[in-house]
Amino acid sequence: MKILELKAEKRTTKGSKAVRKLRMTGKIPAMLYGHKQNNVMLCMKEDEFVRILHTGTRMLYVTYDNQKESALIKEIQYDHVVDRVLHVDFSRIDLDERVKLRVPIELAGESVGVKEGGVLTHVMKDIEIECLPTSIPEMIKVGVTDLGLGKAIHVRELPALEGIRYISDAEAVVVSVHQAVEKKAVTEEELLAEPEVIVRKPKEGEESAEAEKKV
């Protein structure tokens, strides 16, 4: 994966009010941390960052104040309603240092089991791997063409890629093909049923006290 360069500026303002003003000018706040060095508060142009994000890259050269640091995009906060990036976390990473991160799993081909009438379930959509920052794969492609009915592909059966180690549980299922389950028809009794009201059961002592009151 190609490492792109991102221009950023140092920022001195912090707090929700200041950051809101910053976002109104088309910039987004970010933080650079790691390697037991001081945290650096940054800001960058939103459109420039989003363009880089769309390329699928995870490693960046962040430049600010005549400094250039290699960093991994650790976390992105989104506003899910407006679909905007709110904040970005960068983690300092050396290019010869192995990193742990999650990578999406993509399925390729049409399974034999599906042709026989089965249903393909993509259980694990992303997987945790360990690799060098220069060899981060965009995705891990898994061929499902030979996957028959009632069969599954586990993490241990994933294609071995050079310099990449799978961290997720080796026995975990990535994708499986199973028989389609027909849903039971709802009976009339079930349709007319009312939810049961949970009532606290009185303790033995309380019960006798209530009985005395009634008397």
């Binding site: 849903k183 709802v186 079930e190 349709l191 049923a193 939810p195 049961e196 009201v197 949970i198």
Partner: peptide, 12 residues
């Protein structure tokens, strides 16, 4: 399929 809780603490 009728969607509603099986058990509730309060009906209303």
């Amino acid at each position: 399929m009728r969607l509603m809780p099986k058990r509730v603490k309060y009906r209303k």
